[in-house]
Design a protein around this nucleic acid. Structure first.
Length: 432
RNA sequence: GGAGAGUUGGCAGAGUGGUAAUGCACCGGACUCGAAAUCCGGCGAACCGGCUAAUACCGGCGCACGAGUUCGAAUCUCGUACUCUCCUCCA
């Protein structure tokens, strides 16, 4: 959520910046008009309330002196009615202001490439050398199926499309990858968290998924209290401090968590129908930071580096891109995506997204800190995947595949694989 | 799932229809070489609006949250959330 004061004071700047994200200037004008009306209404109703408070005191005094205040009371009955009416009108105006305000995206940072879609994303840097083979590399779903470590057919039977069973060393590899990530992140100072996987609607609002993106998630209706299956650990991690005022000395706070993520993938029918790239349920190791505003841009670079280090240690080629104004998420002021090399598709695919949400989520979720002078400020929140586990497994299967269909285990994962250096048809069930 | 109790300022804790006590803490002052103790005074979250150079001032709001009754609600009514205790159930 944006600061209404800033919109009021710099409307042209806001129109210009949000214009890069597809917001029409008329929408801002409407917001400003409603805000003006709202403030006038507040003045009117507060004047009456001040009067009511004053006269109520007088009535109390008269009553204490055993006097008769019936005339004043009759008069105030009217004022009470007026206040009620004005408050109702005010509530309506506030709802209209809020309706627009909570649907406006964050303001992009000045250095974010401007453009309506992913074609305008900009490559920042590239790492690693692309693998070459004497044979045609296979897609990871073929590798996994042939080894018997991934089973889509059974998942389709039991649940439906976009679900999978991991089996044997496939399961162990998944576990190896996320345990490795969690351990690495903890070395960088991220506290490990196991959060709830179901969250309420206030939490979904706090991190910006609601009210705009309700159809992208799964919501469970349990009597009157709907709960949403988290689409990312960002939601429970960032809402952890919702509504709280932290002490300056607590900052920065770094959290990391492995969680399943659930996404309905509405609107992506036909895309990535095979493999681990686009699932309704997948594991992700997430990093979330709460920082002081002046630190947040530096923290975004560090966060991105922390995610990159995982790929470097796994020796997976990737590049970093800055998402354009039109491609970045609703809450983000600037986002770096890490895209890992997927040989069978001969392209880079997103494996991590690292964003500085500035005060956008903090304002929605009311996450603040008190500085040394006792003043209260909004924190800045950041989040990044470090990394999407399923996609990492896909990248490993493809980049580390051998001609005989086996897959070599990246060195750093061997200890996590209990010493296994290669997955073959023979050892794939993990029982020997 | 059943029954009961609770939720007031940073903490503790009064207050059952008429300006939210008091203590600790905190801030300022007195005393003192200085400090502690003591005394005096003060502020009391956060948010919103007005006026602004202003974190100054004025006002609103504010006693878990929401609605209602009333001239007036921390106080009465209804609903909700959470916490605690007991029973039941349970990985």
């Amino acid at each position: 959520m944006l600061d209404m004061k800033v919109i009021r004071e710099k409307p042209d700047w806001i129109k210009d910046r949000l214009g890069t994200r597809g917001i029409k200037p008329e929408e801002i004008d409407e917001l400003l008009t409603l805000d003006q009306q709202r403030r006038e209404k507040i003045t009117a109703t507060e004047d009456l309330k001040a009067k009511r408070n004053k006269v109520s005191d007088q009535i109390a005094e008269v009553k204490r002196a055993k006097g008769d205040a019936s005339e004043t009371i009759a008069e105030m009955r009217q004022v009470g009615g007026q206040i009620k009416q004005l408050d109702k009108e005010l509530a309506e105006l506030e709802e209209k202001v809020r309706y627009i305000l909570v649907r406006l995206p964050n303001i992009p940072k000045e250095d974010v490439p401007i453009g309506p879609n992913e074609d305008y994303n900009k490559e920042v840097r590239k790492w690693g050398t692309l693998p070459t083979w004497d044979f045609t590399p296979k897609p990871h779903w073929d590798i996994g199926e042939a080894l018997g470590i991934l089973d889509w057919d059974r998942a389709a039977k039991v649940t439906g499309a976009r679900f999978v069973y991991y089996k044997g060393l496939g399961s162990r590899l998944e576990r190896a990858v996320y345990n490795f990530m969690l351990d690495e992140h903890q070395k960088e100072g991220y506290e490990e968290i196991i959060p709830p996987y179901l969250v309420n609607k206030d939490s979904m609002f706090g991190t910006g998924q609601f009210p705009k993106f309700t159809k992208d998630v799964y919501t469970i209706i349990d009597e009157d209290e709907p709960l949403t299956l988290i689409p990312t650990a960002e939601v429970p991690l960032t809402n952890y401090y919702r509504g709280e005022i932290l002490d300056e000395k607590q900052l920065p706070v770094y959290f990391t968590a492995l969680t399943p993520c659930f996404r309905s993938e509405a609107g992506s029918a036909g895309r990535d129908t095979r493999g681990l790239i686009r699932m309704h349920q997948f594991n992700k190791v997430e990093m979330v930071k709460y920082v002081k505003p002046e630190e947040s841009w530096n923290e975004l670079e560090k966060l991105t580096n922390d995610a990159e280090e995982i790929l470097q240690k796994l020796k997976l080629p990737y590049h970093v891109i800055t998402l354009s104004t039109g491609d970045a998420s609703f809450t983000s002021a600037k986002t770096y995506d890490l895209e890992v090399w997927i040989p069978a598709q001969d392209t880079y695919r997103e494996i991590s997204s690292c964003s500085n949400c500035t005060d956008f989520q903090a304002r929605r979720a009311q996450i603040r800190y008190r500085d040394a002078d006792g003043k209260v400020h909004l924190v800045h929140t950041l989040n990044g995947s470090g990394l999407a586990v399923g996609r990492t497994v896909a990248a490993i299967l493809e980049n580390y595949q051998n001609e005989d269909g086996s897959v070599t285990i990246p060195d750093v994962l061997v200890p996590y694989m209990h010493g296994i250096t290669k997955i073959t048809k023979e050892n794939a069930n993990g029982l020997n």
